[in-house]
Nucleic acid binder design. Structure first.
Lengths: 223, 223
DNA sequence: TGTATTATTTTAACGATGTTAATTATATTT
DNA sequence: AAATATAATTAACATCGTTAAAATAATACA
């Protein structure tokens, strides 16, 4: 009974394709069981023969969108030389992807995910999407000693949260007012994180490059 | 005809109170014209005699919630001495407010605001909420030279975006898994921004102006 | 005070939404 | 070709925001 599976997967594909097209073109707000089914060429109730509910269907789009995001980022930096400049460009390209498709941003970071069968995997994919998209850059910078290894974890977190906050404010709160200002703010933030995080340690690391214990001294005050 | 205005304001208050209670207790998801009206003790259609639509009503709650947020932050740090430690505590208290009321977080940063009469003011209030809540701390740190004046703008942006990204991931993507981990990540992020942003300048300032300096040494290796 | 007018509140209704049950159409098997 | 299993569609329900019509309450005037 292999035919059954093939046909079922094909049917799921029709609905998934329709959902993805709608999501990219119209965003999450204007997606519905009926709009998806109409685009797929079936009645709305047919959808429930192939998916548990609408939530499961739309979160099955995440994997595909992630791959599209990754390939778009890789393509936008493929001509650049590896290094910190390319790392920064990858982060910018990642942000640009969500500017281009605000509906995918909402799907990735806003829409509550109910009880999808693979909820944990989807969450992990989303959580590490920026890190994974920049994987090559991180690996290169670390192996070449361009960045101190023990601060890379912090830098990844900082970038993740900063990009997320910037995108949320721009897409949902019109801050800043123009795309040019958004790019400007993003650049400033990325530079501050990559160039200035543990800047003392970073400088030292550059000088001695690799293989030695890295000591970073942080000075705070308790008053 | 002053009575007319008084009575109208009172009526609006009934609905606003109901909306605020629901928002704090149940969140944005379970708020509706009918649930608000029921709690206010009127029929659902009566709401439209006092508000243009549901959007206008719920965004009129923002002002009130902002003030509640501010007073809660101020109260939580009122016993602390002014300075960088209190600044950090204010940021944490700000984040805690939204952890306590996830519905208010969604209202402030996620829910699309349509065409409210005072849309611009509401957006400005939201955009600067963290800065304003910490206003006293920023002013003190700057006037005392605890922080370099020319990096405060960057620090504010960094804090705003980082706190927003952290909250979004924690409230909507279960990352990190526990509240304790969230607080830990928030502390790391805040420390990195406040202590290490332009660390050269910041360090110099600290050494000359602060009584006791706490030096923490972190040792890692990079291979 | 009793009626006419105005203001206020409620009920009915519309078009969408997600989802399920009943019904029809299609394909498979005997 | 008839009986059965599978797939797809229509009907229906409860919810949502919103508007129009109906009912109630308050006020003004005689």
């Amino acid at each position: 009974m292999k035919n059954k599976e093939i046909q079922e997967q094909r049917m799921r594909g029709y609905f998934l394709d329709a959902a993805r097209e709608l999501l990219k073109a119209e965003g999450l707000r204007s997606i519905s069981v009926r709009s998806i089914a109409e685009r797929a060429g079936y009645s709305y109730a047919t959808l429930y023969s192939y998916f548990k509910d609408l939530n499961e269907l739309i979160f099955l789009c995440v994997q595909d969108f992630y791959e599209e995001c990754k390939s778009q980022v890789l393509q936008s930096v493929q001509r650049k030389e590896k290094g910190i400049r390319r790392l920064k460009a990858s982060v910018r390209a990642y942000a640009d992807f969500f500017i281009q498709y605000p509906g995918i941003f909402e799907l990735f970071f806003i829409e509550k995910i109910g009880n999808a069968t693979n909820k944990k995997q989807v969450l992990a994919l989303i959580r590490h999407s920026l890190d994974n998209v920049c994987e090559e850059d991180w690996h290169y910078c670390m192996s070449q000693g361009l960045l101190p290894a023990d601060s890379i974890g912090l830098m990844k977190s900082q970038l993740r949260h900063t990009v997320l906050g910037l995108l949320l404010l721009y897409l949902h709160r019109d801050v800043p007012a123009s795309y040019a200002d958004f790019v400007s703010q993003l650049n400033i933030a990325v530079n501050a994180i990559v160039d200035d995080t543990f800047s003392g340690a970073a400088t030292a690391t550059k000088q001695t490059t690799v293989n030695n214990a890295l000591i970073s001294v942080r000075i705070g005050n308790n008053k």
